[in-house]
Protein backbone atom coordinates (compact mmCIF):
# COMPACT_ATOMS: atom_id res chain seq x y z
CA UNK A 1 0.00 0.00 0.00
CA UNK A 2 1.47 3.31 -0.99
CA UNK A 3 1.71 6.35 1.23
CA UNK A 4 -0.22 9.34 0.01
CA UNK A 5 1.87 11.93 -1.77
CA UNK A 6 1.24 15.56 -0.88
CA UNK A 7 -1.07 15.89 -3.87
CA UNK A 8 -2.88 12.79 -2.70
CA UNK A 9 -3.71 13.93 0.81
CA UNK A 10 -6.93 15.71 1.60
CA UNK A 11 -7.29 19.43 1.55
CA UNK A 12 -5.99 21.21 4.65
CA UNK A 13 -8.36 23.16 6.89
CA UNK A 14 -9.35 26.24 4.96
CA UNK A 15 -9.56 29.82 6.11
CA UNK A 16 -13.04 31.26 6.59
CA UNK A 17 -14.36 32.77 3.36
CA UNK A 18 -13.06 36.30 3.02
CA UNK A 19 -15.00 39.31 1.85
CA UNK A 20 -14.22 40.23 -1.75
CA UNK A 21 -11.46 42.80 -2.03
CA UNK A 22 -12.69 46.16 -3.27
CA UNK A 23 -11.04 45.93 -6.67
CA UNK A 24 -13.00 42.76 -7.50
CA UNK A 25 -16.30 44.02 -8.77
CA UNK A 26 -18.39 43.43 -11.84
CA UNK A 27 -17.25 45.63 -14.73
CA UNK A 28 -20.67 46.25 -16.24
CA UNK A 29 -19.75 49.04 -18.67
CA UNK A 30 -16.64 47.29 -19.95
CA UNK A 31 -18.60 44.10 -20.66
CA UNK A 32 -21.32 45.97 -22.55
CA UNK A 33 -18.64 47.72 -24.58
CA UNK A 34 -16.92 44.43 -25.26
CA UNK A 35 -20.10 42.82 -26.59
CA UNK A 36 -20.88 45.88 -28.70
CA UNK A 37 -17.39 45.79 -30.13
CA UNK A 38 -17.70 42.22 -31.39
CA UNK A 39 -19.43 43.33 -34.55
CA UNK A 40 -16.99 46.07 -35.31
CA UNK A 41 -14.11 43.62 -35.54
CA UNK A 42 -14.75 42.56 -39.06
CA UNK A 43 -11.28 43.61 -40.06
CA UNK A 44 -9.89 40.81 -37.93
CA UNK A 45 -9.28 37.42 -39.52
CA UNK A 46 -10.48 35.74 -36.34
CA UNK A 47 -13.95 37.18 -36.87
CA UNK A 48 -14.29 35.27 -40.11
CA UNK A 49 -12.82 32.08 -38.77
CA UNK A 50 -15.66 31.99 -36.27
CA UNK A 51 -18.36 32.57 -38.87
CA UNK A 52 -19.62 29.01 -38.34
CA UNK A 53 -20.61 30.09 -34.81
CA UNK A 54 -22.04 33.50 -35.66
CA UNK A 55 -25.64 32.89 -34.73
CA UNK A 56 -24.63 31.25 -31.42
CA UNK A 57 -22.30 34.17 -30.76
CA UNK A 58 -25.07 36.64 -31.43
CA UNK A 59 -27.34 34.87 -28.96
CA UNK A 60 -24.61 34.81 -26.33
CA UNK A 61 -23.86 38.51 -26.83
CA UNK A 62 -27.52 39.42 -26.72
CA UNK A 63 -28.08 37.42 -23.55
CA UNK A 64 -25.01 39.04 -21.99
CA UNK A 65 -26.29 42.59 -22.52
CA UNK A 66 -29.73 41.56 -21.27
CA UNK A 67 -28.17 40.15 -18.10
CA UNK A 68 -26.23 43.38 -17.74
CA UNK A 69 -29.49 45.31 -17.85
CA UNK A 70 -28.80 46.98 -21.20
CA UNK A 71 -30.99 45.08 -23.66
CA UNK A 72 -30.78 47.86 -26.25
CA UNK A 73 -26.99 47.72 -26.48
CA UNK A 74 -27.30 45.67 -29.68
CA UNK A 75 -29.46 47.14 -32.48
CA UNK A 76 -32.70 45.10 -32.56
CA UNK A 77 -33.46 45.59 -36.23
CA UNK A 78 -30.01 44.59 -37.43
CA UNK A 79 -29.94 41.56 -35.19
CA UNK A 80 -33.30 40.39 -36.51
CA UNK A 81 -32.26 41.03 -40.11
CA UNK A 82 -29.18 38.91 -39.58
CA UNK A 83 -31.13 36.08 -37.99
CA UNK A 84 -33.52 35.86 -40.91
CA UNK A 85 -30.64 35.98 -43.39
CA UNK A 86 -29.62 32.56 -42.00
CA UNK A 87 -32.93 30.76 -42.50
CA UNK A 88 -33.43 28.02 -45.10
CA UNK A 89 -36.62 26.94 -46.82
CA UNK A 90 -36.95 23.86 -44.60
CA UNK A 91 -37.33 26.07 -41.52
CA UNK A 92 -33.83 25.42 -40.18
CA UNK A 93 -31.15 28.04 -39.64
CA UNK A 94 -27.44 27.99 -40.47
CA UNK A 95 -24.74 29.73 -38.45
CA UNK A 96 -24.49 32.48 -41.06
CA UNK A 97 -25.82 33.04 -44.58
CA UNK A 98 -24.74 30.19 -46.87
CA UNK A 99 -24.08 27.76 -44.00
CA UNK A 100 -26.05 24.52 -43.73
CA UNK A 101 -28.93 24.22 -41.31
CA UNK A 102 -28.24 22.69 -37.93
CA UNK A 103 -30.14 22.24 -34.69
CA UNK A 104 -27.72 24.38 -32.71
CA UNK A 105 -28.20 27.48 -34.89
CA UNK A 106 -31.92 26.94 -35.22
CA UNK A 107 -32.19 26.92 -31.44
CA UNK A 108 -30.11 30.10 -31.17
CA UNK A 109 -32.34 31.73 -33.79
CA UNK A 110 -35.49 30.84 -31.85
CA UNK A 111 -33.90 32.01 -28.60
CA UNK A 112 -33.01 35.36 -30.17
CA UNK A 113 -36.51 35.69 -31.64
CA UNK A 114 -37.98 35.00 -28.20
CA UNK A 115 -35.58 37.36 -26.41
CA UNK A 116 -36.48 40.19 -28.80
CA UNK A 117 -40.14 39.17 -29.02
CA UNK A 118 -39.86 38.97 -32.80
CA UNK A 119 -42.51 36.30 -33.32
CA UNK A 120 -44.50 38.62 -35.62
CA UNK A 121 -41.42 39.08 -37.80
CA UNK A 122 -41.02 35.28 -37.83
CA UNK A 123 -44.51 34.92 -39.33
CA UNK A 124 -43.85 37.71 -41.84
CA UNK A 125 -40.46 36.61 -43.06
CA UNK A 126 -40.56 32.83 -42.98
CA UNK A 127 -43.06 30.89 -45.02
CA UNK A 128 -45.26 29.13 -42.49
CA UNK A 129 -43.55 30.96 -39.62
CA UNK A 130 -43.13 29.19 -36.32
CA UNK A 131 -44.81 26.03 -37.58
CA UNK A 132 -42.19 25.57 -40.31
CA UNK A 133 -39.38 26.05 -37.80
CA UNK A 134 -41.07 23.71 -35.32
CA UNK A 135 -41.49 21.02 -37.95
CA UNK A 136 -37.82 21.25 -38.89
CA UNK A 137 -36.81 20.75 -35.26
CA UNK A 138 -39.27 17.93 -34.63
CA UNK A 139 -38.15 16.15 -37.82
CA UNK A 140 -34.72 15.62 -36.27
CA UNK A 141 -36.06 13.37 -33.51
CA UNK A 142 -35.09 9.72 -33.96
CA UNK A 143 -38.28 7.73 -33.78
CA UNK A 144 -36.77 4.59 -32.23
CA UNK A 145 -34.49 6.12 -29.57
CA UNK A 146 -36.22 9.45 -28.87
CA UNK A 147 -33.01 11.46 -29.08
CA UNK A 148 -32.32 14.22 -31.63
CA UNK A 149 -29.86 14.59 -34.46
CA UNK A 150 -28.11 17.87 -35.20
CA UNK A 151 -28.79 17.73 -38.92
CA UNK A 152 -29.61 15.35 -41.75
CA UNK A 153 -26.25 13.59 -41.20
CA UNK A 154 -27.54 12.06 -38.05
CA UNK A 155 -25.03 12.84 -35.30
CA UNK A 156 -26.98 12.67 -32.04
CA UNK A 157 -26.23 14.37 -28.74
CA UNK A 158 -28.24 15.25 -25.63
CA UNK A 159 -27.33 18.87 -26.48
CA UNK A 160 -29.56 18.63 -29.53
CA UNK A 161 -32.32 17.01 -27.51
CA UNK A 162 -32.31 19.84 -24.98
CA UNK A 163 -32.05 22.45 -27.73
CA UNK A 164 -35.05 20.97 -29.49
CA UNK A 165 -37.21 20.97 -26.38
CA UNK A 166 -36.08 24.46 -25.40
CA UNK A 167 -36.88 25.92 -28.83
CA UNK A 168 -40.15 24.05 -29.18
CA UNK A 169 -41.30 25.22 -25.76
CA UNK A 170 -40.54 28.83 -26.82
CA UNK A 171 -42.56 28.19 -29.99
CA UNK A 172 -45.38 26.52 -28.01
CA UNK A 173 -45.00 23.42 -30.20
CA UNK A 174 -43.86 20.76 -27.75
CA UNK A 175 -46.67 18.48 -28.87
CA UNK A 176 -44.76 17.85 -32.13
CA UNK A 177 -42.32 15.48 -30.42
CA UNK A 178 -42.53 12.14 -28.67
CA UNK A 179 -41.83 13.36 -25.15
CA UNK A 180 -41.99 9.96 -23.46
CA UNK A 181 -39.32 8.61 -25.79
CA UNK A 182 -37.16 11.68 -25.23
CA UNK A 183 -37.41 11.25 -21.46
CA UNK A 184 -36.60 7.54 -21.75
CA UNK A 185 -33.51 8.42 -23.72
CA UNK A 186 -32.29 10.84 -21.06
CA UNK A 187 -32.74 8.16 -18.44
CA UNK A 188 -30.61 5.85 -20.57
CA UNK A 189 -27.83 8.46 -20.46
CA UNK A 190 -27.57 8.39 -16.66
CA UNK A 191 -24.19 7.05 -15.56
CA UNK A 192 -22.87 5.12 -12.57
CA UNK A 193 -21.61 8.32 -10.96
CA UNK A 194 -25.02 10.00 -11.20
CA UNK A 195 -24.09 12.29 -14.10
CA UNK A 196 -25.10 12.32 -17.76
CA UNK A 197 -23.18 12.27 -21.05
CA UNK A 198 -23.85 12.95 -24.74
CA UNK A 199 -25.52 9.57 -25.15
CA UNK A 200 -25.97 6.23 -23.38
CA UNK A 201 -22.59 5.12 -22.02
CA UNK A 202 -20.84 8.42 -22.71
CA UNK A 203 -18.82 9.94 -19.88
CA UNK A 204 -20.55 12.27 -17.42
CA UNK A 205 -19.89 15.88 -18.30
CA UNK A 206 -21.30 18.93 -16.51
CA UNK A 207 -22.45 20.52 -19.77
CA UNK A 208 -24.40 17.40 -20.64
CA UNK A 209 -25.80 17.19 -17.12
CA UNK A 210 -27.24 20.65 -17.74
CA UNK A 211 -28.80 19.64 -21.06
CA UNK A 212 -30.36 16.49 -19.58
CA UNK A 213 -31.72 18.20 -16.48
CA UNK A 214 -33.08 21.16 -18.43
CA UNK A 215 -34.76 18.78 -20.87
CA UNK A 216 -36.30 16.84 -17.98
CA UNK A 217 -37.39 20.13 -16.46
CA UNK A 218 -39.16 21.17 -19.70
CA UNK A 219 -40.75 17.71 -19.81
CA UNK A 220 -41.87 18.13 -16.18
CA UNK A 221 -39.96 14.98 -15.17
CA UNK A 222 -37.28 16.17 -12.74
CA UNK A 223 -38.83 13.63 -10.35
CA UNK A 224 -36.75 10.99 -12.17
CA UNK A 225 -33.48 12.44 -10.87
CA UNK A 226 -31.60 11.15 -7.82
CA UNK A 227 -30.98 14.68 -6.57
CA UNK A 228 -28.66 13.85 -3.69
CA UNK A 229 -26.34 11.66 -5.73
CA UNK A 230 -26.21 14.02 -8.70
CA UNK A 231 -25.90 17.03 -6.40
CA UNK A 232 -22.96 15.32 -4.72
CA UNK A 233 -21.22 14.80 -8.05
CA UNK A 234 -21.95 18.34 -9.24
CA UNK A 235 -20.78 20.02 -6.06
CA UNK A 236 -17.60 17.96 -6.22
CA UNK A 237 -16.75 19.94 -9.37
CA UNK A 238 -15.67 22.95 -7.28
CA UNK A 239 -11.92 23.29 -6.85
CA UNK A 240 -10.12 25.03 -3.98
CA UNK A 241 -9.75 28.24 -6.05
CA UNK A 242 -13.55 28.44 -6.32
CA UNK A 243 -13.76 27.58 -10.02
CA UNK A 244 -15.67 24.57 -11.31
CA UNK A 245 -14.56 21.84 -13.70
CA UNK A 246 -16.73 19.80 -16.05
CA UNK A 247 -15.36 16.33 -15.26
CA UNK A 248 -13.25 14.87 -12.45
CA UNK A 249 -9.55 15.74 -12.65
CA UNK A 250 -10.02 18.42 -15.31
CA UNK A 251 -9.15 22.10 -15.08
CA UNK A 252 -11.61 24.69 -13.85
CA UNK A 253 -13.33 26.86 -16.47
CA UNK A 254 -15.69 29.83 -16.10
CA UNK A 255 -18.31 28.29 -18.39
CA UNK A 256 -19.01 25.55 -15.83
CA UNK A 257 -20.16 28.27 -13.44
CA UNK A 258 -23.28 28.12 -15.56
CA UNK A 259 -23.46 24.42 -16.49
CA UNK A 260 -22.86 23.22 -12.93
CA UNK A 261 -24.57 26.14 -11.19
CA UNK A 262 -27.78 25.99 -13.20
CA UNK A 263 -27.90 22.19 -12.84
CA UNK A 264 -27.63 22.50 -9.07
CA UNK A 265 -30.29 25.23 -9.11
CA UNK A 266 -32.69 22.97 -11.03
CA UNK A 267 -32.41 20.32 -8.32
CA UNK A 268 -32.49 22.93 -5.51
CA UNK A 269 -28.91 22.30 -4.42
CA UNK A 270 -27.09 25.42 -5.55
CA UNK A 271 -26.07 26.15 -1.96
CA UNK A 272 -23.90 23.01 -1.99
CA UNK A 273 -21.13 25.01 -3.66
CA UNK A 274 -19.36 28.00 -2.16
CA UNK A 275 -20.88 31.00 -3.96
CA UNK A 276 -18.41 33.54 -2.61
CA UNK A 277 -15.46 31.58 -3.87
CA UNK A 278 -17.13 31.05 -7.22
CA UNK A 279 -17.94 34.76 -7.58
CA UNK A 280 -14.36 35.64 -6.81
CA UNK A 281 -13.07 33.19 -9.41
CA UNK A 282 -15.38 34.58 -12.11
CA UNK A 283 -14.58 38.20 -11.25
CA UNK A 284 -10.86 37.42 -11.41
CA UNK A 285 -11.44 36.13 -14.93
CA UNK A 286 -12.64 39.54 -16.17
CA UNK A 287 -10.49 41.56 -18.53
CA UNK A 288 -10.52 45.03 -16.92
CA UNK A 289 -9.18 46.78 -20.02
CA UNK A 290 -10.98 45.24 -22.93
CA UNK A 291 -14.05 43.96 -21.04
CA UNK A 292 -15.31 40.40 -21.37
CA UNK A 293 -14.60 37.26 -19.36
CA UNK A 294 -12.13 34.48 -20.03
CA UNK A 295 -12.10 30.73 -19.22
CA UNK A 296 -9.76 31.27 -16.27
CA UNK A 297 -7.71 34.20 -15.00
CA UNK A 298 -5.06 35.38 -17.42
CA UNK A 299 -6.43 33.96 -20.69
CA UNK A 300 -8.09 35.67 -23.68
CA UNK A 301 -11.74 36.71 -23.37
CA UNK A 302 -14.50 35.52 -25.68
CA UNK A 303 -18.24 35.99 -25.85
CA UNK A 304 -19.00 32.39 -24.79
CA UNK A 305 -17.17 32.69 -21.48
CA UNK A 306 -18.49 36.21 -21.04
CA UNK A 307 -22.14 35.19 -21.15
CA UNK A 308 -21.72 32.04 -19.06
CA UNK A 309 -19.62 33.88 -16.49
CA UNK A 310 -22.32 36.54 -16.20
CA UNK A 311 -25.07 33.91 -16.08
CA UNK A 312 -23.16 32.12 -13.32
CA UNK A 313 -22.91 35.34 -11.32
CA UNK A 314 -26.59 36.01 -11.91
CA UNK A 315 -27.51 32.56 -10.59
CA UNK A 316 -25.72 33.21 -7.33
CA UNK A 317 -27.47 36.60 -7.14
CA UNK A 318 -24.43 38.75 -7.67
CA UNK A 319 -25.49 42.41 -7.56
CA UNK A 320 -25.75 44.32 -10.83
CA UNK A 321 -27.26 41.56 -12.95
CA UNK A 322 -30.75 40.62 -14.07
CA UNK A 323 -32.03 37.33 -12.71
CA UNK A 324 -31.58 34.30 -14.95
CA UNK A 325 -33.80 31.22 -15.38
CA UNK A 326 -31.69 28.08 -14.86
CA UNK A 327 -33.51 26.20 -17.65
Amino acid sequence: MSKPTPAESCSPPSQPAQALPDELHLLVEQHVQYVRSLDTRKDEYEYWLTEHLRLNGLYWGLTAVHLLGQPDALPRREVIDFVFSCVHENGGFGAAPGHDTHMLYTVSAVQIIATLDAFDELEERVDGGRKTVGKFIASLQERDTGTFAGDEWGETDTRFLYGALNALSLLHLLHLVDMDKAVEHIQACENFDGGYGTGPGAESHAGQVFTCLAALSIAGRLDLVDRDRLGGWLSDRQLPNGGLNGRPEKKEDVCYSWWVGSSLAMIDRLHWIDSNKLAKFILQSQDPDRGGITDRPGDMVDVYHTVFGLAGLSLIKHPGLMEVDPV
Partner: peptide, 20 residues
Protein backbone atom coordinates in the same frame (compact mmCIF):
# COMPACT_ATOMS: atom_id res chain seq x y z
CA UNK B 1 -18.27 37.12 -52.86
CA UNK B 2 -19.95 37.23 -49.48
CA UNK B 3 -23.16 39.23 -49.67
CA UNK B 4 -22.41 42.78 -48.75
CA UNK B 5 -24.41 45.92 -48.27
CA UNK B 6 -26.06 48.10 -45.75
CA UNK B 7 -28.88 45.60 -45.25
CA UNK B 8 -26.47 43.25 -43.49
CA UNK B 9 -23.90 45.31 -41.67
CA UNK B 10 -23.40 42.35 -39.35
CA UNK B 11 -22.14 40.34 -42.29
CA UNK B 12 -19.89 42.74 -44.15
CA UNK B 13 -16.50 41.93 -45.54
CA UNK B 14 -12.96 41.76 -44.32
CA UNK B 15 -11.62 38.24 -44.79
CA UNK B 16 -7.97 37.59 -44.82
CA UNK B 17 -7.15 37.28 -48.49
CA UNK B 18 -6.58 33.57 -48.98
CA UNK B 19 -9.46 32.51 -46.83
CA UNK B 20 -11.75 35.02 -48.42
Amino acid sequence: PQEEGSAHPLASIAYAENYS
